[in-house]
Structures are given as C-alpha cells and as structure tokens.
Computed example of a mutant assay.
Amino acid sequence: MALNDLKDVYTDQLADLWSACSQSREATMALSGAASDQDLKDALDAGAEGILAGMDAIKDLAARHGFDPESEHCKGMEGLVREARDHAVEAEFGSDAARDAMIISQYQRMAHYAIAGWGCCKAFASRLGLGEDARTLDECLSNTYDGDDRMTDIATGKDGVNADAVA
C-alpha cells in the first residue's frame, strides 16, 4: 500500500501499534509468569490489562477510519519480544531477584517502544484535526507512561527489586 499522505501514515502506524501491543501483551503475560516479586507480578498483570485496553482503543479507531488493525506485523516489537523471552524468561539466573530485575528491564524496553508509537500516532491525529482520536491516544500514552513509572518504582525503591538483586 502506498502511503500518500499523513492520514495513510497515521492508519499504517495505528495498525503497526496494534501488532506491537498484541505481541507485547503476550510477552508481558510470560514475564508475569516468570516473576517472583508479588508487586512486580501485579504490575505486569495490570500492564497486560492496560495493553488490552489500548488494543481495544485502536480497534475503535480502526473501525472509525475503515481499516483493519491486524493488517500489519510489527518487526520492531517482534525483536523486543524475542529479547524479553531470551533474557528474562528462558535465561538461567542465580537468584529470583536478578531475574525480576531483568524482567523489569525487558518490560520497560517494550513500554518505551509503545510510548514512541502512541506519541507519534497522537501527533498525527492532532495534525489531522482528529481531536477525539488524539484524546484517546493521549490517554493510552499516559497509561503507558504510568506503567513504566510503576516499574521504575518497583525496581529502584528502597526495598526494591534492584536492591534485592545486589546480593
């Protein structure tokens, strides 16, 4: 498909973001299954639910603009998901805390990729005069930032995962 204008770029990137979310949600559930810290498990489970809510938002936007959100496959997230599985789920660790620290690292890499996607799509929607779309995308972006901040707190708090992993 030729991308002739910003509207084409917008819908293409929404479809790519839907694929990224779909892949990262599956990986997030696997990370939750591998985590030992209960706060981390809870945050990952909430993250998976938040990702699903973002996917629902994209489906609504796709219906509004008449495109199939499942038409793209995000190769960027595919690589991040592979890294998350290789480095956090399937790798061997000497301690649960070290694994939990790696889980946070891998989750945040995926979240930062999503932040870029949400932000770009929001900017496109704003430029296109799609105020309702931009508000929806801003909410998804904000939720993703909140999840990322929660992971940072779990990692770096006084009694956080990183402190436990030092030993």
Rank of each mutant, 00 (worst) to 15 (best):
K59R: 13
Y107C: 11
H73E: 10
A97V: 09
R64N: 12
A63E: 14
A114L: 15
Y113T: 10
K75I: 13
L52C: 01
L80Q: 00
G54C: 10
L52I: 00
G76D: 10
D96V: 01
A91Q: 11
A97F: 10
C120M: 12
A98Y: 00
G76I: 06
C74K: 06
E70I: 02
V89S: 08
I104D: 02
C121M: 03
A91L: 07
R99I: 07
A101N: 08
G119L: 08
A53N: 07
R64V: 01
G117R: 04
L61C: 03
A111V: 01
K122W: 04
M110N: 05
H65C: 01
D96F: 01
Y113P: 09
V81K: 14
G76A: 14
D68V: 03
L80T: 11
S105A: 13
L61I: 15
C121F: 01
M102Q: 14
Q106D: 11
D86V: 10
H65M: 01
V89Q: 04
S105W: 00
H65R: 12
I58T: 04
A88I: 06
F67M: 05
D86W: 03
C121Y: 01
C121P: 00
S71H: 07
Y113H: 14
G66T: 07
E90H: 12
E90D: 15
G66R: 05
M102P: 00
A91Y: 09
D96T: 12
